[in-house]
């Protein structure tokens, strides 16, 4: 026999569901479609995923303040790369640069390298140009550009956060091994992207 509180909650839920409006679903265009297209663009590209997660993992190895400076620098510089892509400034070897970002950042994690913060920011920023360029040139013409931009910036940031969250394991010896192993996997994936295997 459910208690009165449960019955009350069920009554409220019933009243709420009874008062719903039609969903008026759309075809994937406009703000909703643009957001989904932008949000999924970095996630569905494994080269982007590997590099974005690597930024967070490496930041965890570098410790404060780099752990947070890199995710602040990356989207700002990435946007400049996207600008270059959108207005048609030629940047050579985009796919190579993206694959190299996974290799370099992965190796940084494997060897737990800790360069000065400015150098880390320059390395990450340089690779951010390539990722941003790819996002900018691959912006679908049929979607809302504002929603697309919001989606892919948030998605990129969340991938960084995922990397940082995993990277926080380095405070334990076993976690440190796991994070460095993840760096190795990312570098290996980068080599696969570079060689065209993946």
């Amino acid at each position: 026999m459910p208690n009165r509180a449960t019955l009350t909650l069920m009554a409220i839920a019933l009243a709420y569901f009874s008062a719903t409006f039609p969903a008026l679903a759309h075809t994937g265009e406009g703000y909703g479609g643009g957001f989904v297209a932008g949000f999924t663009h970095p996630i569905l590209g494994w080269d982007h995923v590997a590099a974005m997660v690597a930024v967070g993992l490496w930041g965890a190895f570098l410790g404060a303040p780099a752990i947070w400076i890199l995710p602040v620098v990356f989207p700002l510089v990435m946007a400049f790369g996207a600008v270059a892509g959108i207005i048609g400034i030629p940047v050579p070897a985009i796919e190579t640069g993206i694959a190299l970002s996974a290799v370099v950042l992965g190796l940084m994690i494997v060897f737990a390298l800790k360069p000065p913060i400015w150098m880390s920011a320059v390395i990450v920023g340089a690779f951010a140009i390539f990722h941003g360029y790819a996002h900018g040139t691959e912006l679908p013409a049929t979607v809302n550009p504002f929603a697309y931009a919001v989606g892919f910036v948030i998605s990129t940031g969340l991938l960084h956060l995922a990397g940082i969250a995993f990277g926080l394991l380095i405070r334990w010896p076993a976690g440190r091994v796991a994070v460095r192993g993840a760096g190795g996997l990312i570098a290996f994936a980068g080599i696969a992207f570079l060689s065209g295997v993946a």
Binding site: P71, A82, G136
Partner: peptide, 16 residues
């Protein structure tokens, strides 16, 4: 981080 995200979106919209 939020400011950086919004800045990136603003710059993208500017270029678009």
């Amino acid at each position: 981080v939020l400011s950086a995200w919004l800045g990136a979106i603003s710059l993208l919209m500017f270029s678009l």
